[in-house]
Design a protein around this nucleic acid. Structure first.
Length: 566
RNA sequence: CGGGGCGUAGCGCAGUCCGGCUUAGCGCGCCUGCUUUGGGAGCAGGAGGUCGAGAGUUCGAAUCUCUCCGCCCCGACCA
């Protein structure tokens, strides 16, 4: 490509209203253009990179025997009613009507459509296993699009679905995907984590996410520095920092005027926050539930949600007052007016001398032992958020917390969809059984953003050879000198004839302009034809990443370039 | 959906508090001419704006009031 003819609108100035480096660089390098919030046009070099990612994904999916197909984006609403996900997705689905006023949606994912295909074509255990995938635009009306392509409302996803006869075979399909995903992200040159993830309300027997660390990430991971343990914070477990168990003592009411928060109470009483018990009221299916957490811990709502298998919300202040006869800050499990389900974090089990609210304004109670002092049955579960510095349950190593961006998610769906959509097959004994499914996604643009995020400097993007829109960027300097222009053109044609993706900056602009643009665009190799060529007959090859310069004679050029390419 | 910020030329911004010396300005970019080619060139000339939209207040509105729209950030949300 000749830059003089290219649609490659680079910008010197940093776009305002942007925060994330990958977003800023994609805009500055002329890769993307915003059309509306969360909706982008992909300009030629942006699209070129995306196509490279897609091709890698396609190769690795094909390698595990997955079969590519293409499903409709426009879906009749009825099929989404079959699984109840019309309601579940709610406002996140784009909705529209056809001329007959029939309700349609723009698909945010395709489990239902796949399941429909499966129930029509998969009849016998002999028809499985199957893995079907597509690489296609998805639509989600995100409440808050952000960070450029990281969270967009229209984005490209590779989604695949496996159909198997039972859980063992699902496990195989799942592992095939895990392997394929590792290869894909490795090939893209990314550093990533594989973490166990929350199954949420979807049930199923497990899922893993493929994550790249980033301070801009929307997910939080817990990672062990000593072993392989890595999990999404939503489900991560740890050994809490141990505290010495106090002696058993009797209950005592303490006057704590105006002291509501854990910190206020512990400061006032001169005790460790870990001796306190946080009492939280949640509402689940309109029923109140008291949740108890150690004072130095925080509740992990995802864990509560999966323990209860029901969406939860914190109770409103007036609801709390209604239930406990006092305001937030002084509630506790001892002396509750109305009985309610109580769920406590494991760390509180068998502890002596805990302190909680007295259900009376300005009073707390000390000396609490849940087993001794609470008559009703208390359910115990791991409910706390894992914090940095806690110990790994597997190896006792130190856990760290990092933010991350989710690039891929593999999911054992089980039979949720096949049951509700009646996708059954006949097993080898002649019985009807629901197809056992898996679903697996990759965010294509997120790979591009992550690749930039992991490889840039103050001058611009640093592409690796796999994803680079062009491998080589030729820069003729002083090119009104016909020798230089001729040489540069000659190299350009030579490289092209070797199938090496090359761009040449044949614009009539100053050298500084060309260098800045080349660094911003970040092709792996810059080939500079200038003074050195005129005086010494040498062509300069500069590596974008290391800034290393190599000077070669013309007859050595192609050989050298090829040896530099991996 | 809650909180905050912003909307003035293709891009980045000043002007808005305190209405009228602003014929709406600056930098970058763009066009023409001459000069210029190892780190975003110089000089000269030029084009480009319903000041996000609508309504109102006023003799007079980019500036004040109201409504709406859009974009960004924080939070909530994110099978």
């Amino acid at each position: 490509m000749r830059l003089s003819q290219a649609f490659l609108p680079t910008r010197k100035e940093l776009p305002s209203d942007t925060v994330m480096p990958s977003h800023q660089l994609m805009l500055r390098a002329g890769m993307i253009q915003l059309l509306a919030s969360g909706i982008y046009s992909y300009l030629p070099i942006g699209w070129k990179v995306i196509k490279k990612v897609i091709e890698i994904v396609r190769e690795e999916m094909d390698r595990i025997g997955a079969q590519e197909l293409m499903l409709p984006i426009l879906n009749p609403i009825e099929i989404w009613d079959e699984t109840g996900r019309n309601t579940d997705f709610g406002d996140e689905m784009f909705r529209l009507y056809d001329r007959k006023k029939r309700s349609l949606i723009l698909a945010p994912t395709h489990e239902e459509i796949i399941c429909d295909l499966a129930r029509k074509y998969i009849q016998s255990y002999k028809d499985m296993p199957q893995i079907w995938y597509q690489i296609q635009t998805k639509f989600r009306d995100e409440p808050r699009p952000r960070s450029g392509l990281i969270r967009a409302r229209q984005f490209i996803m590779k989604d695949s679905y496996s159909m198997d006869v039972d859980d063992d075979h699902l496990e195989k399909s799942y592992q095939l995907h895990a392997q394929a995903y590792k290869k894909i992200f490795h090939r893209c040159g990314l550093q990533f984590h594989i973490v166990t993830a929350s199954s949420g309300l979807m049930g199923g027997s497990g899922s893993q996410e493929f994550m790249v660390e980033s301070e801009y990430g929307e997910d939080t991971l817990v990672i062990c520095s000593d072993c392989d343990y890595a999990a999404n914070q939503e489900i991560a477990v740890s050994h809490s920092i141990k505290i010495k168990n106090k002696e058993a003592v009797s209950l005592k009411r303490l006057h704590t005027p105006g002291k509501k928060t854990i910190k206020e109470v512990s400061d006032f009483l001169g005790i460790q926050t870990s001796q306190l018990m946080k009492s939280l009221i949640y509402i689940c299916n309109s029923q109140p539930i008291m949740v108890l957490i150690r004072g130095d811990h925080e509740l992990n709502e995802s864990k509560l949600l999966s323990f209860l298998s029901c969406p939860v919300r914190p109770a409103q202040p007036d609801e709390v007052k209604d239930l406990c006869n006092t305001e937030i800050g002084f509630i506790g499990p001892v002396g509750l007016k109305k009985s309610m389900r109580i769920i406590a974090d494991l760390s509180l089990k068998d502890q002596h001398d805990l302190i909680a609210g007295a259900n009376k304004k300005d009073f707390h109670i000390s000396g609490i032992e849940l087993k001794r002092d609470i008559k009703q049955k208390i359910e115990y579960s791991d409910l706390k958020i894992v914090k940095s510095g806690e110990k790994c349950k597997i190896c006792n190593g130190k856990l760290k917390i990092v933010n991350a961006i989710e690039l891929g998610h593999i999911f054992k769906l089980g039979t949720k969809y096949s049951k509700s959509m009646k996708a059954f097959f006949v097993d080898n004994k002649g019985h009807d059984k629901p197809i056992v499914m898996g679903s697996y996604g990759i965010g294509i643009e997120r790979i591009v953003a992550a690749a930039i995020l992991q490889n840039f400097d103050d001058k611009g993007i640093i592409w690796n050879e796999v994803l680079a829109p062009y491998l080589i960027h030729i820069i003729p300097i002083k090119f009104d000198n016909t020798d230089i222009l001729e040489m540069a053109n000659q190299l350009y044609y030579q490289l092209k004839s070797q199938q090496l993706d090359t761009i040449i900056d044949d614009r009539y602009v100053t050298p500084g302009y060309k260098f800045k643009d080349a660094d911003l665009l970040g092709m792996p190799f810059q080939v500079i034809v200038g003074e050195k060529w005129l005086h010494d007959g040498l062509i300069e090859i500069k590596k974008r990443k290391s800034n290393e310069k190599i000077f070669v004679k013309q007859n050595e050029f192609i050989k050298t370039i090829k040896s530099l390419l991996k």
